[in-house]
Amino acid sequence: MHDPDDKSSTLTLHLPDEVATDAFGHQLAPLLHPGMVVWLDGDLGAGKTTLVRALLRARHHAGPVKSPTYTLVEIYVISRIYWYHFDFYR
């Protein structure tokens, strides 16, 4: 269970634009493995879906990657790994 007050596993980054976000996503993607949870927190329009898109593209997902604003969750299956992209903004 994630403790939001536990900052030992928290990384805060300022990615100035979509290019930087995409580059970071491609660097981060190979480090992710089944069972990991990545929690993205930021204002509306901060680039959370842009980062998810970069992560999925780095894992060779060619289909659309959209914000789950209306569906609440988008599921992607890549190499037998299930990626769940939730929107808890509401």
Rank of each mutant, 00 (worst) to 15 (best):
D5H: 15
D5M: 13
D6L: 00
K7T: 03
S8E: 06
S8C: 06
S8T: 14
T10V: 14
L13M: 05
L15C: 07
L15S: 09
L15D: 09
P16Y: 14
P16G: 08
E18H: 04
A20H: 07
A20Q: 09
A20Y: 07
T21L: 05
A23I: 13
F24K: 01
G25A: 07
L28H: 08
A29P: 01
P30M: 03
P30F: 04
L31V: 05
M36H: 10
V37A: 10
V37Q: 09
V38R: 06
V38W: 12
W39G: 00
W39K: 09
L40H: 01
D41K: 06
G42K: 00
D43G: 06
D43E: 14
G45P: 00
G45Q: 07
G47Q: 03
T49E: 06
T49R: 02
T50F: 11
R53P: 07
R53A: 15
A54T: 03
A54M: 03
R57I: 02
R57L: 03
R57V: 05
R57T: 04
A58D: 13
R59I: 06
R59V: 07
P64V: 13
P64F: 11
S67N: 07
T69L: 04
T69Y: 06
Y70Q: 05
T71K: 08
T71P: 08
V73I: 15
Y76E: 12
Y76M: 12
V77L: 15
I78G: 09
I81S: 12
Y84Q: 08
Y84R: 06
H85D: 01
H85L: 03
F88C: 15
F88D: 12
Y89P: 00
Y89V: 05
